[in-house]
């Protein structure tokens, strides 16, 4: 009960702060709000994906993570509510929402206030519906199969909408897939850390370690491929995304991500260290912290203040 009240109280406080930032027109504060919100929304949203994957593929890990995944998915309506300040303050954050902006071709159609808001509503409605259908007792493989197909499209587009269009010149077709890998990594990191608070046998812990390893590898692969393709061709409207994110202190974060969201977890999760409950929990906490930092890094340096 206390957890529920804490979440409700925190949610209300966050909502009010977000509204204040949106109405005051402060791009930095609303940007920080968006970064934290996207970082935390990864938990219910990534949990929904993991829940569907488990319904389709099965696996022992469902026994330990299942209740947490279900619990996390129930936070989706709260996340939807907390997006309202972002939608209210669209033109504070998104250059395309400001008067006088005109985009070429598809951008002009895609990037309109009412269309953006309608899409966000549809995304959340589809996720909440899928979650509601899945959380009924019993197994629902058909819901999970169709839900997963819909989810890959809605979650990809949500990533494109919320994060990529902060800089309307930028365009990367792997962005949606990369966003989904961030959702799964963020959710898995936090939920594994929570799950390890209760006692768990060694084989079950090793399975969780393998899941984390898979999520880290997937994220590392997609993030590096996006970078490599953009680096190779070196087009101004693409490399500027990375250049802006490596100016001044921001330059520390990509290196931090390489070391602490990829290399160190990779080594620890592949070695004997993963048998230790403490080290595994430490890796999970580190991954979640890096996930939040990455969300900030994706939003803040690109803002046009």
């Amino acid at each position: 009960m206390t957890l529920r009240m804490a979440i409700a109280g925190g949610g209300l406080a966050a909502f009010l702060l977000g509204m204040a930032a949106a109405l005051a027109g402060s791009a930095f504060w609303l940007g920080l709000y968006l970064a934290l919100l996207v970082g935390l929304t990864a938990v219910p949203l990534g949990a929904l994906a993991l829940l569907m994957i488990h319904q389709l593929a099965g696996g022992e890990w469902g026994r330990n993570l299942g209740p947490l995944l279900r619990g996390a998915t129930r936070l989706l309506p709260l996340a939807a509510l907390l997006f309202v300040p972002v939608l209210v303050g669209l033109e504070v954050l998104y250059p395309w929402a400001r008067p006088g902006w005109e985009g070429p071709g598809g951008k002009g159609v895609w990037l309109q206030d009412w269309f953006f808001i309608a899409r966000s509503v549809v995304y959340f409605a589809s996720w909440i519906l899928t979650a509601w259908l899945l959380l009924r007792p019993g197994r629902h493989p058909v819901v999970a199969g169709l839900g997963m197909a819909a989810y890959t499209i809605t979650a990809s587009l949500a990533g494109v909408d919320w994060l990529m269009t902060l800089e309307p010149e930028f365009n990367s077709s792997v962005f949606g897939l990369l966003f989904m890998s961030q959702l799964v990594l963020g959710a898995l990191a936090l939920l594994v850390a929570v799950a390890l608070r209760s006692p768990m046998a060694l084989p079950a812990r090793k399975t969780l370690a393998s899941l984390l390893l898979a999520a880290v590898l997937l994220w590392g692969y997609l993030a590096f491929m996006q970078y490599l393709v953009i680096w190779s061709v070196d087009l101004p409207h693409e490399v500027s995304w990375y250049l802006q994110r490596s100016e001044g202190v921001w330059a520390l974060i990509p290196w931090g991500l390489v070391l602490l969201q990829f290399l160190l977890p990779l080594i620890l999760l592949l070695s004997w260290a993963r048998s230790s409950r403490r080290i595994l929990a430490g890796v999970a906490v580190l991954l979640f912290a890096m996930h939040m930092l990455e969300a900030g890094w994706m939003v803040l340096p690109g803002l046009r203040l």
Partner: peptide, 27 residues
């Protein structure tokens, strides 16, 4: 498996050719 075919994809995505240069190609 992952590196070989991502390398193949880079043959296309790694050049400034419309329809080839797109970041989704490796996966």
């Amino acid at each position: 498996v992952v590196t070989v075919h991502s390398g193949v994809a880079m043959l296309f995505a790694g050049g400034p050719v419309p329809g080839w240069h797109t970041t989704i190609f490796p996966p």
